[in-house]
Structures are given as structure tokens and as C-alpha cells.
Design a protein around this nucleic acid. Structure first.
Lengths: 216, 216
DNA sequence: GCAAATTGGTTTCGCCTCGATACCTTAATG
DNA sequence: CATTAAGGTATCGAGGCGAAACCAATTTGC
């Protein structure tokens, strides 16, 4: 299919030492590229069921956040977008009947968001579930290593980007720590920030007030 | 900061078994979420130096692809975008002086793309490099596991999405295999598809004609 | 050889996402 | 109270991207 004119072209500007070639990559570089491309594909994956990636991500967040975090502002912070943008995303989700906004009676400025039954049904069809499936077929050790590595990567990047680290209370939130006034052993755990007992699955949920000491 | 009205709310619709909670995730689910969020952050990261994520990705690809793959069509296929879209991306990169288009004399329809010196300087400032740095600080074992796991994930997703698996010749391209007419041991390896000897760093570069048997 | 079909690229059009800005309402602060 | 801050929303405009139409060159089929 082709004439070989390799020697007159610039295919190998600095060719000899294979390590210096753009094509030869170490593990770190490969991970970087894979993350990048997987991100693109994951994005692609989410143009489905009439939602776009941002809407899916918001929905996912809303499904996992605790009550105080299920607000437009919470979504905005989590997704690293502006409030204006998120307002539109939320409106879109609402007009599709996937979520319901109810004004908070505690603070009349904020509105609390809940998934409707329709929304729960939608989240059950989450397209990123397919990633989960694929990873689920790998051996536990690899999966565990990946969680560890990707988690650290995420934390570092959050610092880099200056965005807030979110997390679930039980993970390692400083507000849940004993020295923040929380006694985990007796009865329901209490959030050291709000002083409020965490009932049901609340401590398992994403919280906007999450804080940990890893943010060195 | 708050009244506890947890028992009257729907925070814990199906609360008791912790495994069923939206907040409790296994490794696979965590990987899925991390990929998704890392993708979003990586995207964010790439709005830099006047380029957008698509432009960075194209530039990165062009820096790593072999000669026959450095065309608008190659970029389009690699990125999973339409030719029209990529044409704009390429035009943008060209108008910024980062790449140069030269019409192929072999086939007057195609145009070959090369990075300019400016482009090479730009790629040296690649923002995803920061991921590389972070991963580089992890231990080798973790990094290696991540490459393996993410690689498999990528391959599976490509099949899922019906997009073409790209790769570098040396990896496991069937065209490079002995039964495809390529004798790796004697002299320069030859691409079994084009029959062309692969000189310099060519076998290390991304090729649009890459083919392997993993696509089960 | 010559039409017909294919392929690589570009252009145009329009939708949609998203950030910026301005604005409204309610809380906190003094 | 007056002021400032904070949560949300509406509007505007830039830009990305796919769809479709189009052009030119190449390949295929008869």
C-alpha cells in the first residue's frame, strides 16, 4: 500500500533511545492516557435515555448524597460547575420528572431535591453500570488496587484543581472523629459539625461538609 | 445547624441491610465512580493554554501516531468523533500553528499532519502530565496493576461501544504476527498489512490499522 | 476504459452545554 | 434596621459537536 520513504521523513527525529520515543511509555504515562481516554468513552456512554453526562452525574450524586447535600449548590460544588449551570441541569431533570424540588422550611432560600420513583428507576439503568460490570469480572486484588490507586489520584487532583474533596461520613471525615465530639461507639454516630445524629444510611451518604485530614 | 427530622423523611427507604444502600459500594462500583469523576476532572484540566480537551487529545494522538495514522480520519476514528468535527479541531490546531497539513502525494485526497516545533513545545506542557506525575509517585506494583486493569476496562468498553481498538504495533498487532507474513527476528519488522518495513520508532507508534486477537 | 460507488476532507447549519453576569429573595452580621 | 452575604434563577453569548450536503480523488464493476 505504500512506498517507504521513512528515511526522508521526520518519523524519528530523536529515534535511537527507545525510552525517549513518544510511543514508549512507562506505567505512569499509560495510566494518564488510559484515564484520559476512558473519561472520553465514559462521557460518550452517557448520552443515553435522553440525558447528558452532566445530568447523569447530577442524578447519581443526588441518589447518594445525604439530605443536607441534596441541593443545587451541593450538586454544583460536587460537579465543580457554576450554580447557574447546575440550575439548568436540575431544571432539566425536574422537567423530565426524575427529581422533585421542595423548598426547605428551615432556610427559605434553599430547595431540597429528591429523586422521584421515575428517577430511581432511571438510576437503575445508569450507563456507567457497565463499567461496574466489567470491573466486577476482574479479580478482587486488581479491583482493590485500582480503587486505591484511583482514589489517591482523585484526591491529589482535587487538591491540584482546588476543588473540595467530597466523601461519605464514615470514610474518614474529621467531623465524625472522636475529637470532633463524635463518639462512634455509643448509639447513633453524630456529625461533629452539625451535631446531628446520623440515622439510617446517612453516614454512608455523600456529604458536602465532608472533611478529612488527607488534604495535607 | 439543624433539626433532626430524619424519621419523617425518606432518607432510608430500604435502610437496614447496609449492602443495599446507595452509599455502600463494592470495589467495582467505586472504580466506576472514580473513572467517571476522574474523567470529568481530567476534562476540566485540559482547558488550558487556549486549547480545549478535544484539541489536546488530538494533539496527543498526532504526537504518538505513525505516519499513516496522522490524518484527520485517523484522529476522528481514534477520538470517536465525526470527520466534520475533527476537521474543525484540526483547523483550530493549524491556525494556532501547532500542526502542519501537507497533502499526500500518494493519495491526493488525504492530508498528512505533523506537529510543528511549536506543537512539540505545546505537547511538552500537556496538562495531563500532572496525572502522570501523581501516578509516578505511587509504587510500581500499584501502577502496574492499574495499567492492567484500566487497559482491560478500555478494551472491553471499546467492544461495547463498537469503536475500533487502537494500539501500537509492537503490542500485539496481528499484522505484526509471524503468520501474517511478518518475521520479527530478521532485520526490521514489517507490517503484515502494508508489507512495509517499520523503521525507527514506527513500531512503537499508534497505528490505525492495529488489530489484535483480544477483540473476541 | 468508463460509469458508479466509495472514501477522505471540508463547509454549513443548528442544537445544546456551559460559564459569566445580573438579578431576586432570604439569612446573617453589625 | 441597614448592610452584606448566600442560595437560586434567568438571560446572554461563546464554543463544541453531530448531521447533512458537498467536493475531489480513488476504486470497483461491467
Amino acid at each position: 500500500m505504500t512506498v517507504n520513504d521513512g528515511q526522508t521523513r521526520s518519523d524519528n527525529a530523536d529515534a535511537r533511545p527507545p525510552a525517549a520515543l513518544p510511543g514508549a511509555m512507562d506505567h505512569a504515562a499509560r495510566v494518564a492516557e488510559l484515564i484520559d481516554r476512558l473519561g472520553r468513552m465514559t462521557r460518550e456512554l452517557q448520552y443515553v435515555d435522553g440525558l447528558n453526562p452532566a445530568q447523569w452525574e447530577a442524578l447519581r450524586y443526588l441518589n447518594r448524597a445525604n439530605r443536607y447535600s441534596r441541593t443545587p449548590g451541593g450538586v454544583a460544588e460536587f460537579l465543580g460547575a457554576t450554580k447557574g449551570t447546575i440550575s439548568q441541569t436540575v431544571s432539566a431533570l425536574e422537567s423530565k420528572g426524575l427529581i422533585a424540588r421542595t423548598p426547605s422550611d428551615r432556610d427559605k432560600r434553599v430547595c431540597l431535591i429528591d429523586l422521584t420513583d421515575e428517577g430511581k428507576r432511571m438510576i437503575a439503568r445508569d450507563p456507567v453500570r457497565c463499567i461496574e460490570t466489567i470491573v466486577g469480572e476482574m479479580d478482587e486484588a486488581t479491583a482493590a488496587q485500582m480503587v486505591g490507586g484511583l482514589g489517591r489520584l482523585m484526591a491529589s487532583l482535587q487538591i491540584e484543581l482546588g476543588s473540595k474533596p467530597f466523601g461519605v461520613c464514615v470514610a474518614c471525615c474529621r467531623h465524625l472523629a472522636p475529637d470532633a465530639g463524635c463518639k462512634q461507639s455509643e448509639g447513633a454516630p453524630k456529625c461533629g459539625m452539625t451535631g446531628e445524629p446520623l440515622k439510617g444510611d446517612a453516614p454512608q451518604r455523600i456529604c458536602v461538609n465532608y472533611l478529612n485530614d488527607a488534604a495535607e
